Simulated scan of single mutants.
Amino acid sequence: MGFEVSDAYSYDSIFAMLDKNRFDYIPRGIHEIYDEIEIRKVDLPHLMVEPRLALYIPSPFYMFVSKSTPQIAARLELGLEKMVEDGSLQSLFEQYYGAYIEKADLENRTIIHLGNPLLPSKTPLERKVLWHSFSVEAQ
């Protein structure tokens, strides 16, 4: 797609750099962006969430455990699979992220699917039940 990537010295500096037009945007997670804008609204009042576009970059959450305690990994996997089966994982997702998704108004945005070349090869992208389903057309 022809994107140019810029580096920043620190997490906080990327917002100041954006405010100074050193680049065009910062891709942020739907669960991050609104709070980040709110926190910085006094010091960087010109920052905003782009209203018509959204980037879709698959970004899973992982839990890591010590290789010396594989029983912990097995128990976590068993528990999470049970949560998938009984719908409680989806309920938790909605509880904690539903308001962000609603606020983003994805139905009225163009979603640009970028993929994620940094994902581990074992990332279960084909297991749709583990990913939020966007009911909008992708670009």
Rank of each mutant, 00 (worst) to 15 (best):
L114F: 08
T123C: 13
V129C: 10
E137D: 12
E94H: 05
P27D: 06
M63A: 09
D19T: 00
P60V: 07
D12A: 12
K41F: 00
P124N: 08
G29K: 04
V84I: 14
E38Y: 09
S59R: 03
L47N: 05
L55V: 03
L18K: 02
E126W: 04
P120W: 04
I111F: 01
K82M: 11
M48L: 07
S133E: 14
R127A: 09
H132Q: 11
E77R: 09
L114T: 09
V49D: 01
T110L: 12
K41Q: 14
L18W: 08
L76I: 15
S133A: 11
F61P: 00
P117S: 08
Q71F: 09
P27C: 06
K82A: 14
L130H: 02
A73G: 10
I26R: 05
F134P: 00
T123N: 03
Y34H: 13
V42C: 01
K122A: 10
S13D: 13
Q95P: 00
P120V: 11
G115T: 08
Y100G: 01
I37N: 04
V49T: 11
P70V: 05
S135K: 15
S10I: 00
D12H: 08
Y11A: 04
R109W: 02
P60F: 08
I37D: 08
H46G: 13
Y62A: 03
A73F: 01
E32A: 07
E32I: 02
D7M: 11
D105R: 13
S88D: 04
D7Y: 09
F134W: 09
Q90W: 07
D86P: 01
H46T: 10
Q71P: 00
Q95A: 12
I37G: 02
E36L: 05
H113R: 14
L53M: 14
E32C: 02
M63S: 11
L80G: 03
L78F: 09
P51E: 08
L119A: 07
E102D: 12
Y100F: 15
